[in-house]
Amino acid sequence: MKNIITTLIISLFFATNAKAQNYICRDGETSFFSETPLENIAAINKTVNSVLNITTNEIAVKMVMTEFKFKNHLMEEHFNENYMESPKFPNGIFKGKINEAIDWKKDGSFDVTAKGTLIMHGVSKERLLKGKVTIKGEEITLLCDFNIPLSDHKIDVPKLVIAKIADNVAVKNKFIFTAMKK
């Protein structure tokens, strides 16, 4: 009896250890697109960091706003100086939890939703985001598209340029997670 318990506990211990709980992505891509008849604005950030905990389904995303690259340097300067105020609010953050129970060890594709807090321009907003998880071996890919209304995060657009910037900015995310080494 004693031996059985010991082996059971030991095997449990190894089981938890064999599969790392934290998955990390250091080069996630977040892009956004604002479309108006006058002007399209697009930018991409390829250095987004994210951690996914597969035991608790918790997810954390953090990006540096100045890492968004634009085709037009002036747009980039205005984005940081006038709209996002990057020196004051350097990061964009999402902290949340994936609602669906997923067997992270099995290959496949799943639609998921995540509830959490999106912090941008110093303003926190509760959001329910929809995404898609694809598991292939040791790699987990997370795709997530959503819209951000600029007014939600107190991003002021002056009347002079209001026709050039969409009220709703489309955001696309792509994170490829790999298991974190202990």
């Binding site: 938890t16 709980q21 934290n22 990390i24 250091r26 960091n49 994210s50 951690v51 996914l52 905990n53 035991t55 608790t56 918790e58 997810i59 954390a60 953090k62 953050i93 902290k95 974190m180």
Partner: peptide, 13 residues
């Protein structure tokens, strides 16, 4: 395992 993923992120980036 129940560490806040944001702490894990901060420590590993």
């Amino acid at each position: 395992a129940q560490d806040d993923p944001m702490d894990v992120l901060e420590k590993n980036t």
